[in-house]
Amino acid sequence: MEGTHTEHLVHRIATLRDRLDAGMDRREFLRTLATGGYALGVAQFLGVDDFLAADDGEVPIVTAFVRSDPEDPLSLEERTRYVPAEWYAAVEKALEINELLAQRAFTGYLGSAVVPGSYESGSASISVGIDSGADSLRETFDGLLDGVSFNIETIVDIEDLEEGPDDFDPRILGSISGGSVPGGVACETSGSIATLGPVLYDPDGDQQLFVTAEHAFEGGAEPDSDQLSLPLQEADTVELGTVEHSHPVEDIVTVAPGGQIEPSTALDTPSPTRVRGQLTRYGLADLIARGENLEKVGAVTGHTTGKIQGIDAVTCFTDDFCRRGQIRWGGEMDLTDGDSGSVSYYDDPVGADEDVLVAGFNNARTWWPGQSYVWGVGAYRMTEMYGYHF
C-alpha cells in the first residue's frame, strides 16, 4: 500500500508541475496546494521555490549557465530570470510543435524555427520554409500548428549554392602568447581554413578541447587521424592536435591539445573578451523578447553584430539529413568562407566587463533570395547531446 500511495503522490506532483509550466499563477498554485492536501514544503520537492518568489503571472526560467570561478570548468551555476507566464506558455507550445514538424519530416519541408514574441505580446510564432513544389503543405501545417501563428516562406533554387570569394585574407594570429590560443582566429586543416572557437570543456570538465567546424575537413574529419593546425604570421604553422570527436550533423569537431599549446577562454575581439559560460534555449528566447543582439568574431569577416531571428531551428538545406537545435541570427554578410567554427556570443550582464556568454557556433549562411541569416548549432544543443560546455 505504501508503494501505491507514493506512486500516486508522484503522479499528482508531476501533474501539478505540468500545470505550473502551462502558466498557472502563484495564487492558483497556493490554492491547489491547500485544497489538494499538500504541505507547502512540496514546493521544494517540485523545484519551484523561485516560482513562489515571483510576482503573480510570472514564472522563472534558466537563462544561462555561468562559471562562478572563471578558472573552474565545474563551477557552473544557473542564471535565472522571471518572465510572464503567458509568454512562457506560448514559447513552450511553439517549441513542442516545431519539434513535431521535424519529426514528421514532410516531403518539401526545408526547415523551421521558433520566433518568440516580445514579453508584452505574450506570443511566439513558427517560421517554416518549404520547397517551391510543396505548396500543398500549407494546408497541412495550418491544421497541425494548433493555433500557433506561423509564417510559411517558399524557398527556390535551394540547390544552387553560391561559392564564396575566390580570394580572402583571413585574420592570422601574429604569435602565441602565454601558451594558449584565443578563439576567433584562423585555424587550418589539410585542405581548408576555418575559425577556431574558444575552449570547449568535455562533460567531466577535466579536458580542455580545441573546436572548429567539421566541414573544414575535406571528406569529413577522421578521429585519431586528421590534424588541426594554427597558421602564424611570425613563424611556421603549429600543430594544435588530433581530431578527437567528429560530429558531422552538428558540424563541429573537437581536438585534443597535442602539445604545450592550449585553447583559451579569450576571444580575439576589438576589446578584451573572456567566455564565462553559455546561454540556454530560454536565454536566447529572452534575448529575442527584449530585442537584443548577438556578436561574433570570425577569421575573415571579423567582428559583427545582428538580431536573433529564430531558435531551436531545424535546417534541411544542405544534406540528406536535418540539423536541429540551430540558431538563426544576423544576416548573410555576417559569415563567409573561413568564418565557420566561430561562436556567436552575448555580453554577460552580471559579470565583469570582459565576460561574455556563448550562444552557439556559426557554420553556414543563407544563399537564396528572400532570407538572410547565419545558422549554426546552439551551445545548449551540444550540452544536451554530448555534455560539452563553455
Rank of each mutant, 00 (worst) to 15 (best):
124 A>N: 05
282 Y>T: 05
126 I>W: 00
290 R>P: 06
221 A>M: 01
308 I>D: 01
239 E>N: 08
20 L>Y: 14
103 Q>A: 15
74 L>H: 10
371 Q>D: 12
363 N>K: 00
153 E>R: 15
12 R>F: 08
172 I>T: 00
97 I>V: 04
348 D>C: 06
390 F>S: 13
25 D>S: 09
41 G>F: 05
295 E>T: 15
30 L>A: 13
120 E>D: 14
168 F>E: 11
347 D>Q: 00
207 Q>W: 06
109 Y>G: 04
57 G>A: 00
103 Q>S: 15
348 D>Q: 06
257 P>E: 11
304 T>A: 03
147 G>K: 00
328 R>Y: 13
54 A>E: 14
292 E>A: 15
186 A>M: 08
11 H>F: 14
215 H>K: 13
176 I>P: 04
162 E>G: 02
331 G>I: 12
161 L>C: 12
106 F>G: 09
13 I>K: 15
168 F>P: 10
287 L>W: 06
280 T>H: 03
53 A>F: 02
83 V>D: 04
354 E>Y: 00
168 F>H: 11
294 L>C: 04
189 T>W: 04
151 N>M: 12
45 F>T: 07
61 I>S: 02
199 V>S: 08
361 F>G: 14
264 S>Q: 04
267 L>Y: 03
17 R>Q: 15
54 A>P: 01
282 Y>P: 01
262 E>C: 06
333 M>Q: 06
137 L>S: 05
316 C>V: 10
9 L>P: 07
32 T>W: 06
382 M>I: 02
85 A>Q: 10
152 I>Y: 07
233 Q>D: 08
188 E>K: 11
32 T>E: 15
219 G>W: 10
257 P>G: 02
183 G>E: 05
139 E>A: 12
253 V>I: 14
192 S>M: 14
315 T>G: 01
358 V>T: 00
310 G>K: 04
174 G>K: 11
53 A>N: 09
356 V>Y: 05
117 G>E: 11
218 E>N: 14
323 R>C: 07
44 Q>N: 13
127 S>D: 15
113 A>L: 11
229 S>E: 11
116 P>S: 09
120 E>Y: 02
195 T>W: 03
12 R>V: 10
89 A>F: 06
58 E>A: 12
179 G>A: 11
283 G>C: 04
70 P>T: 07
271 S>A: 13
184 G>C: 04
178 G>L: 05
242 T>D: 02
110 L>C: 09
133 G>A: 07
230 L>A: 08
251 D>M: 05
198 P>C: 07
152 I>N: 12
161 L>V: 15
197 G>D: 03
246 S>Q: 08
227 Q>E: 13
29 F>Y: 14
213 A>I: 14
237 T>M: 10
36 G>D: 08
357 L>P: 02
358 V>H: 03
158 I>Y: 08
167 D>Q: 09
218 E>G: 13
380 Y>E: 07
147 G>V: 06
362 N>Y: 05
38 Y>L: 15
30 L>Y: 09
283 G>N: 07
296 K>Q: 13
311 I>T: 11
210 F>K: 01
184 G>H: 01
389 H>V: 00
220 G>K: 09
120 E>P: 11
168 F>K: 10
201 Y>G: 09
364 A>L: 03
32 T>D: 13
220 G>P: 10
271 S>N: 07
88 Y>I: 01
337 D>T: 14
140 T>F: 03
134 A>M: 03
349 P>D: 08
255 V>M: 02
29 F>P: 12
334 D>Y: 00
274 R>N: 13
345 Y>T: 07
247 H>D: 11
